[in-house]
Design a protein around this nucleic acid. Structure first.
Lengths: 351, 351
DNA sequence: GTGAAAGCGCTAACAG
DNA sequence: CTGTTAGCGCTTTCAC
């Protein structure tokens, strides 16, 4: 199959002009007579010529590809993000190469390396393993890089106002009357985001002069959790003499897993436990889940991220790294309610 | 920033050998003395040389990139599929370029064109717009193509046993005692798959000598559905004198939307309506959703798809297109139950 | 406006 | 084993 595809030279011959002329019309240069342009165009049609991007890239010493590294495409938040980034990038004429790192440091390293070998014009990180000094050294200051939804001091980034969102979420619980509010995180949550959200939770709890509830690390496959050094049963934390009545989870998936757990031990949400998440993944809006959460403006973030990267690529400016914060919104649904009530807020809040 | 990166020539000079020798060690050719290999390796380290994949591709007239076209990365089923494909492809040394077509014909066309310009080694479709004759003509028989989770007669494909799965699902409902079983589909379901699943539903209903229930086309944003030419309220279909007691939905998302709808009109699932889906997306397994469904072996499909594509790419054989069927399994959860035997009064919905 | 010629960084025979 | 020599398909000066 596949006898070699026609080249610019074949077109030139067929149209009776030179290589360069064909090149000029293909690239839409203005300095071409309508007549020759027509002749060339016809030859292109006739031969079914398709420009070879690889050759172009080599000639220009520059590609129109942006490399996207993402931890887990299976996570709906990232999948959505990837899709949006693709949209904005392709609107600007960039193609994308993807690399899924599964959150493994090594894989991330290899992914970056592969992308660089392909001479992508820039790198967009949708997630970044904390421990990646090697990557920083390789890239910092020499290569267009932008972080979206995560951030590193050495490059541009676009992030949601994590801390503010966490404050919002926690304040919502406080407003409902909760006194003992826990913070819960799971593996697979971006570490920086985690830290910021924890801080926001602390801000709100402290500002209300409440005692801080426990900070829980939970692996959803298990029934125990880590509390500092200790390991205790998750179930016990939620009951006991002075039970937690509300939990702010570091992201929606964690929140949903928690709700699932509550269902399994017949602890009712929100009657007996209020839960709020972070991200507002599609899932959270389903009637059966109806999770109160903090919504990130994903499309806006993708847009800004791609714009920042494009700027770095096209202007090669050396301005210092810039960090853009994108606002977040509290979305109240049915996973939160005042503590220990029989009554329940009925009716869904759509927005 | 970025003074040009070192080339193979710089390395050659630094190591005191020729270009080709460097090339030989970079590609891991065996015909190199340990001594020169060492010298070259050191020079590479020292200069921070990174092979230029673009140049290699041009030289070899062949890339190690596979182009993946997908309709909607936001759909968890596709996102998962994309991730798995990436895994298997990168295990075989292929990089991936993605293109999200949003299900738009035109975008799909453009995506294919862009991927071809980049001279991807092969194309893997995760979804394919029915109307794409142009694409077929462009590709059929001349270019390595494989369809995964969808299929076209003119290329290799790997699909789940849609028809068999649909039979399984429907039979499950029949076994539970349902007599009036509807088939429901929504936009965004692959047309081929839809047809096959519809056929499987028909098979089972007919084999059980039941009257065929309605075939419903529903756009989840609306409260009405299409029934052949007619448009009726979805709610009416489910109540009325001879109500549907079970629905086989063409995929999980449709099923979940239906359940959501039922919740909103207080029609209880599974007590008053049994629902089964298709795909077994992660979502379906959540306690609160607990959807009975047909599980596809996504990882297996991704693996076979990538393998088939790799074979086409590497062997350039002209064997006829092959279609592989991957088995599916019924996963019974809590969205299905025996029908309630009592009859309803016209127009009155029991509370 | 159009053509000629010199790369881009690497691979791939083929000599030595 | 290593070096020499052509390309790969296109871009990009720079003459004409």
């Amino acid at each position: 199959m596949a006898e070699r595809p026609p080249t610019i030279l074949d077109v030139a011959r067929a149209a009776g002009v030179s290589k360069s002329t064909v090149s000029n019309v293909v690239r839409g240069a203005d300095s071409v007579t309508d007549q020759t342009r027509l002749a060339v165009t016809r030859a292109i049609e006739k031969l079914g010529y398709r420009p070879n991007a690889v050759a172009r890239q080599l000639g220009q010493r520059q590609t129109k590809i942006i490399g996207v590294v993402v931890g887990d495409l299976g996570n709906p938040f990232y999948a959505e993000m990837a899709k949006l980034v693709e949209r904005h990038a392709s609107a600007r004429g960039y193609a994308m190469m993807f690399s899924n790192t599964l959150g493994v440091d090594e894989a991330e390293h290899a992914a970056v390396e592969m992308l660089l070998e392909h001479r992508v014009a820039g790198l967009l990180f949708l997630s970044f393993s904390g421990n990646a000094d090697g990557v920083r050294r390789k890239l910092a200051g020499r290569f267009p890089v932008v972080f979206v939804g995560c951030s590193e001091a050495w490059a541009d980034s676009v992030v949601a106002s994590d801390r503010r969102g966490a404050r919002l979420a926690t304040q919502h619980l406080i407003d409902l009357g909760h006194q003992r509010i826990a913070y819960l995180t799971t593996p697979g949550v971006e570490e920086r985001a985690n830290v910021a959200r924890l801080a926001g939770w602390r801000d709100a709890v402290d500002a209300a002069q409440l005692e801080r509830g426990p900070v829980i690390r939970w692996n959803p496959f298990e029934t125990t959790v880590s509390l500092g050094q200790e390991t205790v049963l998750l179930e016990e934390l939620l009951s006991g003499p002075d039970p937690v009545t509300a939990v702010f989870a570091s992201n929606d998936l964690a929140a949903i897993d928690l709700i699932d757990f509550c269902d399994s031990v017949e602890r009712r949400v929100p009657d007996e436990l209020s839960v709020v998440g972070f991200d507002d993944v599609v899932l959270a809006g389903l009637g059966r889940i109806s999770l109160t959460t903090i919504a990130q403006q994903q499309d806006r973030m993708a847009e800004l991220g791609v714009a920042a990267l494009a700027e770095r690529i096209e202007q090669r400016s050396d301005r210092p790294a810039r960090r853009r914060l994108v606002a977040v919104d509290l979305v109240v649904r049915n996973s939160t309610a005042p503590p220990r009530t029989r009554r329940r807020l009925n009716g869904k809040v759509a927005s």
